[in-house]
């Protein structure tokens, strides 16, 4: 069904700007589906995922531009490094709970951001760095339409992967961790391994999307790794609906589109955006999708 929506959406696109927004929405959706595994299913918050996203982007940029590595290799290499980093820091960090975990992940994100900003000889500093199109086996992804289809396919693939992961024993273990960590441990689930696993998976998702984003835009600044971007990603997940793959997807799409729509009202943009965030969470505390689904069910039940 998702494939059909992605395929039919362009019918309403009158020019490539819409494709561009569509690509951004789908990129965010991929990151959010990954992040939702961590937040929604394993119940662990992360305020540092923009850091992993930025590392993927800069990894690709530096490897392809400075060292002439082919983009696909650069992307995979960056993802591997990010995965390793997430694995190394994940163990001690994921022992923390609640707000302490939020603080620790926030700290890691900010440290990554500072390094990217400061090492201007390698990263171009706050003024950013540019890079080339993504090409592989003599084939180059160029233009918004092509990116749209590429990201569409990737999104479907990601959702399929995530759905399978949730239905697997790993997924059940994760939900047990969310429900009661101690309880899960008592029945013999190695909770910390599962938490680290899903942390690494979500970081790798963010890194790969970061690489693709860098190639699509052709220019990146350290801002993509800022604390605000991390908060934005978490907001997408929570707003759309935690522990719901499609919820995260919807949250990502809505929060990508909103600023574009609100750009027309200029100085009221921030107020309206804030009010929408508050309103949604007050009236639909479980997030958009789960709340709508349950109210539809209730209506159905009442008949």
């Amino acid at each position: 069904m998702l494939a059909i929506i992605i395929a039919s959406a362009p019918l309403g696109f009158s020019n490539t700007y819409f494709y561009d927004v569509g690509v951004n929405a789908m990129f965010n959706a991929i990151v959010c589906v990954g992040l939702n595994l961590l937040i929604g299913y394993a119940g662990q918050i992360s305020l540092g995922h923009a850091g992993f996203f930025a590392l993927g982007a800069y990894g690709s940029a530096i490897l392809t531009v400075t060292y002439g590595v082919p983009p696909i290799v650069a992307m995979l290499l960056s993802a591997a490094v990010v995965g390793l980093l997430a694995f190394v820091v994940g163990r001690p960090i994921l022992k923390l709970k609640g707000h302490y975990l939020a603080m620790a992940t926030l700290g890691i994100g900010i440290i990554i951001h500072i390094v990217l900003k400061t090492e201007s000889k390698i990263t171009g500093g706050p003024d950013g760095m540019s890079l080339d199109n993504f090409s592989m086996l003599g084939f180059t992804i160029m233009g918004d339409r092509m990116w749209y289809w590429v990201s569409g396919v990737l999104l479907v693939l990601t959702v399929w992967l995530a759905l399978n992961l949730i239905d697997s024993p790993v997924g059940r273990a994760l939900r047990a961790v969310h429900g009661s960590e101690v309880g899960a441990e008592v029945v013999g689930v190695d909770t910390s391994s599962y938490k680290v696993l899903v942390f690494v998976v979500s970081a790798v998702f963010a890194s790969i999307v970061g690489s693709l984003f860098a190639h699509k835009n052709g220019f990146i600044t350290p801002d993509i790794g800022s604390f605000f971007h991390s908060v934005e990603l978490v907001t997408m997940v929570v707003l759309g609906g935690m522990a719901s793959i499609f919820g995260a997807l919807i949250g990502a799409v809505i929060l990508t589109l909103l600023p574009q729509i609100l750009a027309a009202v200029e100085q009221y943009e921030a107020m309206i955006l804030g009010a929408i965030m508050m309103g949604t969470m007050i009236f639909m505390p479980k997030g958009l999708l789960p709340s709508i689904v349950s109210s539809v069910k209730r209506l159905g039940g009442g008949r």
Binding site: V234, M271, M277, M278, M281, I282
Partner: peptide
């Protein structure tokens, strides 16, 4: 939203901070 998840309330306060900044400018 008193009885909601902690994360839900965090997002509400983030929304509030964006709103207040918008109002202040």
């Amino acid at each position: 939203a008193r009885n909601s998840d902690v994360v839900t309330i965090i997002i509400i306060t983030i929304g509030a901070s964006i709103f207040m900044r918008g109002a202040a400018q």
